[in-house]
Amino acid sequence: MIELKTSAEIQRMHLAGRFVAEVLSEVGRLADVGVNLLDLEHHVRGMLGRRGAQSCYWDYAPSFGRGPFRNVICLSVNDAVLHGLPHDYTLRDGDVLSMDLAASIDGWVADSARTIVVGTAAEQDLRLIRATEEALEAAIDAARPGNRLGDISSAIWAVARDYGYPVNAEFGGHGLGRTMHEEPHVSNRGRAGRGLTLRPGLTLALEPWFARTTDRIRYDADGWTIRSADGSRTAHSEHTIAITADAPLVLTRRESERPATRSSTAGRLSTTDG
């Protein structure tokens, strides 16, 4: 069942979205060479507690996980891209770190993810991150009343093809509102003009994620952390949006973030995020 949100409910989600954006900005600032993932996890726990927010991940127990998730943020390094369990790992120069947070405030949820490079960045890693950022902005632009869900999926897929990256369709975006996962599922690969007609009040988490050379995945022994099957590096970008009668409203935009924009050269883009 798909639940359309009122303007007042979207504003409440926006409050949660601004907090999630603040946390991801802070974690990105703190993540540096020599920092342990568990220190980042504990810092986020403190931010949640001070705000009176709840992590949607704590005790999350879907069919694909192994036992309940007992962390408040997902931290995935290098070839890990989704559901990374914070663990005793010290960040190294050149690591690619994906950070994913869903939080609830007063019963309303927002969900966002970003990927950064710790220390010295390799151009091929920056290119992969930029591709997910550009795909996310293309997806947001397609999220307009009268368009179809397939238009969002197709927009993501088109950017991946331009960059030459394969796309996994097992995990993608989703509806959200009072809970972290609602209908509909939003694939990162699809055909334009197909699927659900988009209407004002629909709230979605859009989350393109790519691995450099494969669309296949494997799980760690922890039953949660998802990696590229061939060990190639990965990146993940996500925003919570609301479809309105006018332009899509991004509920998790970070203050320092400038939306990624295409340049005239395929496979390039300009973006700034402190």
Rank of each mutant, 00 (worst) to 15 (best):
M1S: 15
E3P: 11
L4F: 15
E9S: 02
H14K: 07
E22S: 06
S25A: 02
S25V: 03
G28T: 07
R29W: 04
A31F: 02
D32E: 02
G34H: 02
V35P: 12
V35G: 01
L37D: 11
H42F: 02
H42W: 01
H43T: 12
V44N: 11
R45G: 13
M47C: 09
G49R: 11
R50V: 12
R50W: 06
G52L: 05
Q54Y: 05
Y57T: 05
W58H: 07
D59W: 07
R66D: 15
F69A: 15
F69H: 12
I73R: 03
I73G: 01
S76P: 07
V81T: 09
L82D: 11
H83M: 08
H83K: 09
H83D: 06
H87Q: 14
H87E: 15
D93G: 03
D95E: 05
D95C: 14
V96C: 14
V96D: 01
L97F: 13
S98M: 02
M99D: 10
D100V: 00
D106T: 08
A113V: 01
V117E: 05
V117T: 13
T120M: 04
A121I: 05
E123L: 12
E123G: 13
L126I: 15
R127F: 07
T132F: 15
A138G: 09
A142S: 06
L149I: 06
G150K: 07
D151H: 10
I152P: 06
A155K: 12
I156H: 14
I156Y: 14
W157A: 15
W157F: 15
V159S: 10
V167I: 03
N168E: 00
G175P: 13
H181Q: 06
E182C: 09
E182A: 08
E183N: 10
H185P: 09
N188Q: 11
P200G: 15
P200E: 15
L206Q: 08
A211N: 10
A211S: 07
D230M: 01
D230R: 02
S237A: 15
T244P: 14
L249S: 14
T252G: 01
R253I: 10
R254G: 02
E255S: 13
E255R: 09
T261N: 11
A266R: 06
D273H: 08
G274R: 05
